[in-house]
Simulated scan of single mutants.
Amino acid sequence: MDGITPQLLALQLFTGLALGAIYVLLAVGLSLIFGMLTVVNFAHGAFFMVGAYVGLFATEKTGSFWAALVITPIAVAAIGMLCERWLIRPLYGRGIDYPLLLTFGLAYMMVEGVRIIFGKAGIPFETSEVLQGATNLGFADFPTYRLFVIGVVAALLVALWLLIEKTSFGLIVRAGARDPVIVRVLGVDVSRVWLIVFGVGTGIAALAGVLSAPLQGVSPEMGTSVLTIAFVVTVVGGMGSLMGAVVAGLLVGVVESMAVLFFPEAAKVSMFVIMAAVLLVRPQGLFGRAGLMA
């Protein structure tokens, strides 16, 4: 423990928050789709990966990282909506296994498609010059880009909360997640709501992909490990719970970051330890509802 100062602990905390912010985006998109559609989206990691590639392509074509941040979630959301409309929707009502298996196969198709178009080698992703370098936090310097990621995720979560809690569309989403039959009886086109929700969920995953790209580069396999993390965070927070996704994402990110400092060998295992501990106490997760998978 020698050499571990309060400044180092604070830096690791901020590093964990930046890492957790990416996890939050992944889990929020996954939870949003499951909470409304009851679809276990195994293609979520692939949409994350496609988002990174779309962001890379948009940055090269426009010369602007900022433009890529806007274009990427919109483009991938459109792809996600097409998948929901023509591939997933026909499977509603046939049991939870059918969409799961379809999205599992869809993920493989998306990865192979990217390999064919862009190749198998990883590609570096350069961000805007404004976001390069470090920012002085008073106690130490911290990478400016990681602070930017934390800020973007915080702003997005506020916007998502306002959408779900303060708008008529959000009311329909919340009601549809609890009882879609009643919502349909009231004259609401639930299918259109499902389409939009799936698009929003995949768009958020794509935004997570383009935000993480400058930190790790871009490769066809980048969505595989991320999918595991997304499901761990979602299970810890509670399937279908947006609040659970936020809390669990930040918790897993901070714990993993601190584990790197104190016990590096166990850093990658720490999230599974958290999941096991939570499930032993609350099988439905921190904020999940019992029986949701039934």
Rank of each mutant, 00 (worst) to 15 (best):
I172P: 05
V173H: 10
V173P: 06
R174A: 00
A177G: 09
R178E: 08
D179W: 00
V185K: 05
L186V: 05
V188W: 11
V188T: 14
V188C: 12
D189E: 12
R192V: 11
W194Q: 12
W194N: 13
V197S: 11
F198R: 05
V200E: 04
V200K: 09
G201E: 09
A205F: 07
V210I: 10
V210Q: 03
V210C: 07
S212I: 07
A213P: 04
P214Y: 02
P214K: 05
P214L: 05
P220Q: 01
E221K: 11
G223R: 08
S225M: 12
V226I: 15
L227T: 07
F231T: 05
V233D: 03
V236N: 06
G237C: 04
G238R: 11
G238E: 08
L242E: 04
V246T: 04
A248Q: 07
G249D: 01
V252G: 04
G253P: 12
V254F: 10
M258W: 08
A259G: 10
A259L: 13
V260L: 15
F262A: 09
F262M: 10
F262P: 07
F262H: 10
F263H: 14
P264V: 13
A266Q: 15
A267Q: 15
A267C: 13
V269Q: 14
S270F: 14
M271T: 04
M271R: 10
F272A: 10
F272Y: 15
M275Q: 02
M275G: 02
A277S: 12
